[in-house]
Simulated scan of single mutants.
Amino acid sequence: MHAVPLHLEAGSDVRRSLEQLAQQHQAGGFVLSVVGNLSQAAFACPGKTAPTVLQGELEIITLQGTLSPDGVHLHLSFSDAECQVWGGHLEHGTLVLRGADLLVGFLTEPAQQPGQPASQARADTGLIAEPRVEIATLPGCPFSRRALRMLRTLGIPFLEIEPTAEGSVPQIVIDGVAIGGYDALAELHSRGELEALRSL
Rank of each mutant, 00 (worst) to 15 (best):
E19A: 05
L21F: 08
Q23D: 04
Q23E: 15
Q26M: 15
Q26A: 11
A27M: 11
A27D: 07
G28F: 12
G28S: 14
G28D: 10
G28I: 09
G29R: 10
G29T: 11
F30G: 01
F30D: 01
V31L: 04
N37A: 05
L38K: 02
S39T: 15
Q40Y: 05
Q40G: 09
Q40V: 14
A41C: 08
A41H: 05
A41G: 14
A42D: 02
F43P: 10
A44F: 08
A44R: 13
P46L: 13
G47A: 12
G47H: 08
G47Y: 04
G47L: 10
K48G: 03
T49N: 06
A50R: 15
L54A: 05
Q55E: 14
G56F: 12
G56C: 09
E57Y: 00
E57S: 09
L58K: 09
L58Q: 08
L58S: 07
E59G: 02
I61N: 01
I61Q: 14
I61F: 04
L63E: 03
Q64A: 15
G65V: 04
G65L: 03
L67K: 01
L67R: 04
D70T: 03
V72Y: 01
H73C: 14
H73D: 15
L74G: 01
L74S: 04
S77H: 00
F78C: 10
S79N: 00
D80E: 10
D80H: 02
A81I: 02
E82G: 05
C83G: 03
C83W: 05
Q84V: 06
V85M: 07
W86Y: 15
W86M: 01
